[in-house]
Simulated scan of single mutants.
Amino acid sequence: MNIDIELIQESKIDTVDFNNLAFGRTFTDHMLICDFADGEWKTPKIMPYGPLSFEPSARVFHYGQAVFEGMKAYKDDNDDVFLFRPDENFHRINKSGARLAMPPVPENVFFEGLKKLLELDNAWIKKGIGNSLYIRPFIIASEGAIAASPAEEYKFIIICSPAQSYYAGEVRVIFAEEYSRSADGGVGFAKAAGNYAAQFYPTSLAHKEGYQQIIWTDANTHEYLEEAGTMNIFFRIGDKLVTAPTNDRILDGVTRKSIIQLAKDYNIDIEVRRVSVAEIKEAARQGELKEIFGSGTAAVINPIKGFKHQNEAFELPEISDSYASFFKDKLLNIQYNKLEDKHNWRVKI
């Protein structure tokens, strides 16, 4: 595949303090852009990272046609670079796009463009557990028109940001009672930009009560726990791990499905089923609720220290044999080429 390449005149990498990176604030030298117009995707371009020009009438600003993905590139001790299950991200961005009436990105544009981008910005991928390059592919409607219909022009873009271990501090959550993340038949399963914007206000209310996130419940009854903030959610009751099934309200997370497979590999009892608020509260009262943790690309696994529902607040115990630590260790060692990859999840660049 032809890729037009415009190299940066002078890299900015020497101005970056890689020991003090704020997540998602620093970007590499180059980005990839591919335009869709006249019913087809054009030749991809790699160019210096920088501002883009859009008409004020670009449909993305008015009708929200925007989907994205989150991936990471890892460098092992031999300076080899790997992606983790990138096929899942490719299929999901097109599944998300289809739900918003956007054209699918061709496989060669996604993978060959990404590979070339990572080759050019290889120096930005640092070795060591916790260091990675966060990759953000996204598609937006770029056509200048304010008619309420799908756009006829789009941009597929990939930008990259160096990242360190993601630590959110101690996280406590509120179980949602009023607001909903998504509804039946909606776009909750897609990584649509609007899904995240809709969470900001309810989450800000949780912050005022001293809680960092919300665990969303089903929109119809608010009786079943589904997803936490930007993460899938797991509960450990005794030695059993439980997580909600995916549906059209819940994102089919790559880290989530990896944890489910690892649990099976290591003979950890896991159930994928609906999880009720009442069940988790009762397990907490009885001392059987050992852990709650979220999973996602950025944080990998994020333990949750406590939760609130209605007028009851619960703290979780400190345990030495946490599943959260176990799974995070296994995943990181697979991603950094330190552990056997029996499922062929690693893809070498």
Rank of each mutant, 00 (worst) to 15 (best):
P150E: 06
Y201G: 05
P202Q: 04
D121A: 02
S57T: 14
G128Y: 11
I33W: 01
A101S: 15
L225R: 09
A284E: 12
M47G: 07
L241F: 00
H309G: 06
T26Q: 05
N94A: 14
A37T: 15
K328R: 14
S325G: 10
W41S: 10
Y166Q: 06
A190G: 09
A313N: 11
N122Q: 12
I304Y: 01
Q212N: 13
K264M: 12
I270T: 03
V60K: 00
K12S: 10
I146W: 08
G238V: 14
S180T: 14
G70R: 05
R181E: 14
I237N: 05
H91Q: 15
D239C: 00
Y336Q: 03
P150A: 08
Y49N: 10
I135Q: 02
N89H: 07
K281W: 07
A168T: 11
E318F: 01
D252C: 12
Y224C: 06
G64T: 09
K308H: 10
P104W: 04
G24R: 00
D79W: 04
R273M: 10
S320A: 06
D184T: 14
K95S: 13
Y63Q: 04
I260F: 07
E209Y: 02
Q212Y: 11
R136I: 07
I146Y: 05
A145G: 15
A206Y: 07
V275C: 12
V109N: 00
E40K: 11
E88D: 15
K308Q: 12
E312V: 11
V105I: 15
I215R: 00
E143I: 03
N122L: 08
A148Y: 11
S142M: 04
Y63E: 10
Q261F: 11
D329A: 00
A244I: 02
R99D: 11
L21Q: 03
A98F: 14
K342Y: 09
D265T: 04
G113K: 00
V171A: 06
F326P: 07
C160R: 00
F18K: 05
I215L: 03
Y166V: 08
I93T: 09
V109H: 07
S53I: 14
P106K: 06
L133K: 02
G194E: 14
H62E: 10
D248N: 03
E282H: 07
R346H: 11
T28G: 01
D252A: 14
R346S: 11
I270A: 06
